[in-house]
Design a protein around this nucleic acid. Structure first.
Lengths: 224, 224
DNA sequence: TAGATTGTTAATCGATTAACAATC
DNA sequence: TAGATTGTTAATCGATTAACAATC
């Protein structure tokens, strides 16, 4: 285990994915509070806003340290900064996108990614009608240039929005270029070396879940 | 509790979301097996393909009935049909999309939705440059027509790809028109009546998770 | 029949909730 | 100080894993 400079972190045991996924929710709401000029927030109030129990929020945060003030609450700007550092957003990650179809196009223009500090450093496709086009201020390059570009620019994260049939091959090239994380929208399991972290997003799961609930839960009690 | 015609289902206790989210994965792989001409699959083999333990798969399926044959495995076409009925995909849901920016545009052209039986029955926006355009074979209409169109066409599911600032208002109109499910990409909690089911997709969570892992897990052991 | 694989019950593991002492 | 709210420990709940009897 490496003791990083920043201390304050404790990180005794592995943190569950459930916790990691809630951190960005906290962060986003803290930014809203900050914009609204609110300096201090209690776990009670924050939980109310987000639909999460205050106990859950306090438990999540204590995985990483003690950021609050007993009897007072959490200082909004301080906590949001802490979460930035926990997630690792203080660093500006370079990302590239492979497959500039409609979805890749949409992600290349997705402002939220930029706001979180992700810098789009390359767009790649195999279609000659798409290569050379300006998408969100970046010229789409040929996929043949991807590996070298990733290496040269030091791109750490690759986004895959290609058809499933070529996703593995694209992932291989990204890994060869040196990415350490892959965000894939292709509905297949990618084989990658153990040092590469893959997160798969499946847009059809949402509709499937809705279909399931509309079919099976004609009664009341619907969560969110 | 309502005994539906189809019998075979048991549905004693509420099924967890984790189970519901794995069903589409099983379904998708079963279709691939079917295309490959494979008639029978064991939980062992299916689990290998999907990176899920065979026990998990069997446990999930027995939430809904006994679909396999002991000593043999599962008949691929039979099981995939069962899952279709569990999820409710045998029925063709009508969906509409509000907010035809890049993401809405991408979803309107997302073939997978159609393949799962979701019929796009309306695209809506407030921007005059977008209204009237043909997107994936459908003419974008003014958002002012949304509520009435939903009612007239019997649209059951609404997809929200608008800015967060208007998402609640759009949701209200969808609910007024009669949708029973909402698939929202806006990063805010929507207030809806209890009979409406909301599923929120947050595209920035994936990148946040990758950032977290790249920051904190420089060691080995990365899942997928 | 022997081998294979399911469906189900029991054991384990992990995450959420509750309770409360610490302290601002 | 009294009131409020955190951080932490204990209790509960639920989901996954393991084991195995049933049976094709």
């Amino acid at each position: 285990m490496v003791h990083s400079e920043g201390m304050t972190m404790k990180q005794k045991k592995a943190i569950s994915d459930a916790v990691i996924e809630r951190l960005p929710l906290y962060y986003r709401d803290l930014l809203l509070l900050q914009d609204a000029g609110i300096d201090i927030i209690s776990s009670e109030k924050l939980g109310e806003r987000l639909g999460i129990t205050p106990e859950q929020i306090r438990k999540d945060l204590t995985c990483f340290g003690a950021f609050g003030k007993k009897g007072v609450g959490y200082y909004v700007s301080e906590l949001s900064q802490q979460i930035v550092e926990i997630i690792g957003l203080q660093q500006h990650w370079k990302v590239c996108i492979a497959g500039i179809g409609h979805l890749g196009w949409a992600l290349a223009n997705y402002k939220t990614f930029g706001r979180l500090g992700f810098r789009t450093t390359g767009l790649f496709d195999v279609d000659h009608r798409i290569i050379g086009q300006n998408v969100g201020g970046i010229i789409v390059m040929s996929a043949t240039e991807m590996e070298e570009t990733i290496r040269r620019e030091g791109v750490q994260i690759g986004i895959i929005t290609t058809p499933a049939s070529v996703a593995q091959q694209v992932a291989d090239q990204m890994v060869a270029g040196g990415v350490r994380g892959i965000f894939s929208f292709a509905p297949i399991r990618l084989a990658v070396p153990p040092h590469v972290y893959v997160f798969r997003e499946d847009l059809s799961i949402g509709l499937s879940r809705i279909s399931y609930y509309l079919t099976n839960r004609t009664d009341g009690m619907m969560n969110n």
